[in-house]
């Protein structure tokens, strides 16, 4: 039995017929080809699958696609403005906030949730906010630096960086 869902993904209205047990992350990756959202642990611990649903960071491996009916979903693909990177994307690049990059989409979406509620977070607040996102490469020092830098850029008028190459 399948359910018909209508939702908005990265500003584009989408309709899908999904099995009730289909996870939101599967619908995004497999049905809508939005593979920027990653599946890491698949047990609600690592945060690699973090997306925004109605403006809030959620783990898309722990939400059914049918629960997103009528919602606005934003994935990492919906963050940049055309070729202009979001300040968080630019800051992760500038501050080397990644090594393999697997956790990065989730880290950035969680950080975006934080910055939407707290424009000037302390390092402790940043670390608390990314408690549900795991990086297994480099540790968190540069990730925290990147979030801090993005916050600064956004506060100073949101200057963004044009993507290169």
């Amino acid at each position: 039995m399948s359910e018909h869902i209508t939702f908005v993904v990265n500003g584009i209205p989408r309709e899908l017929d999904v099995e009730p047990r289909r996870l939101l992350v599967q619908a995004l990756r497999e049905d809508l080809d939005l593979t920027g959202t990653h599946v890491g642990c698949d047990t609600s611990q690592c945060g690699a699958c973090t997306v925004h649903v109605d403006g809030m960071a959620v783990k898309s491996c722990t939400m059914l696609a049918v629960q997103a009916e009528g919602s606005e979903v934003r994935t990492i693909e919906g963050l940049a403005d055309g070729d202009t990177l979001h300040p968080l994307q630019a800051a992760f690049w500038e501050k080397h906030g990644l090594q393999c990059g697997f956790c990065t989409p989730g880290m950035i979406m969680t950080a975006a949730d934080l910055l939407a509620r707290n424009a000037d977070p302390s390092d402790d607040e940043i670390r608390h906010a990314i408690d549900g996102n795991i990086c297994r490469c480099t540790g968190y020092q540069n990730i925290v630096a990147a979030v801090r830098e993005a916050a600064r850029v956004i506060r100073s008028g949101g200057a963004t960086v044009a993507a290169q190459g």
Binding site: A57, V58, K59, D131, N133
Partner: peptide, 12 residues
């Protein structure tokens, strides 16, 4: 509250 799960879990 801040000790429960993580931000994503607390949002849902």
């Amino acid at each position: 509250l801040p000790t429960i799960g993580d931000v994503q879990v607390r949002n849902r």
